[in-house]
Design a protein around this nucleic acid. Sequence first.
DNA 1: TAAATACCGACTGATTTACTAGGTAATAGA
DNA 2: TCTATTACCTAGTAAATCAGTCGGTATTTA
Lengths: 155, 155
Amino acid sequence: MRLSTKGRYAVTAMLDLALNGKKGPVTLAEISENQGISLSYLEQLFAALRSKDLVRGVRGPGGGYYLGKSADEISIANIICAVDEWVEFTRCGGRQNCSGGARCLTHTLWDDLSSEIFNFLADISLGDLVRRNLGKKDEEESNLSVVANSSSQAA
Amino acid sequence: MRLSTKGRYAVTAMLDLALNGKKGPVTLAEISENQGISLSYLEQLFAALRSKDLVRGVRGPGGGYYLGKSADEISIANIICAVDEWVEFTRCGGRQNCSGGARCLTHTLWDDLSSEIFNFLADISLGDLVRRNLGKKDEEESNLSVVANSSSQAA
DNA sequence: TAAATACCGACTGATTTACTAGGTAATAGA
DNA sequence: TCTATTACCTAGTAAATCAGTCGGTATTTA
């Protein structure tokens, strides 16, 4: 699992699409404007997202992008994996012959942790994020004194 | 939060240290040998880890590195943050004036998710990983037909 | 004193990031 | 049918990062 700024751009763009795509396709120009990401970079990201069927493009005037499936069917892990190809870290793979145990032991530990991170992100969908925010928005509207209490935290 | 190969190297090296450092300091040469990481690269990583008090170096023959605190006090997030300086993604920071809502809304969603990932990794300590593996090892010894059932998974 | 180790800084090829430039293909609307 | 709008595609690029080499200095043990 790999989590880089590229993955962040992709998740951010997909969030924008999920939020604004309710009543028609969203153009990359809009996302570029909204999120401050260059148009051509978005094109590259969306080429990868499209190849994994996470988005669907419509050409011509009035065109743009739809989500490829419902927001609930798209996990954060899906998005990150689409744009961030990650190579296998452990050279030993399934083979058990890697430098006599010490290395493989550590690799197994890393693999387990890596799987956990992956499963954690696979359990969060775009839909979850959107709903979570709508809930918070209602909360803020009904109680204006509570302002962004979690967005300033580390990470 | 950022999770790159650099972070993986650091976590792997720290795991090696936690596993082999029971009865004395571990040299970078040993870790280099065990994990297949170049010595000089390890030196760079350990300079960062040392500056965060995650490891403690001892010079001279018989020297090497100890963990800077107990394995239970060192989280995976600590390690990754030490070597992977990550810049703030959202240019708006705490300010609310960023391009009229649409961007900031998405940024807030990302920040929340990012915090969740961070907290997830902050809740896993080196000690947890080591104990988890020792448990599995016992299990394998008592039931040899069960072989590496989770290490081949995605991520 | 010699060897082993941490510690330090400069440099480097390869890769990735984020972007620019310059197109072609498809389609809606005039 | 023409034109504007959009997706879609390829090539190139400056800057940063990755992972490493090289050549040291400082400290400590034997």
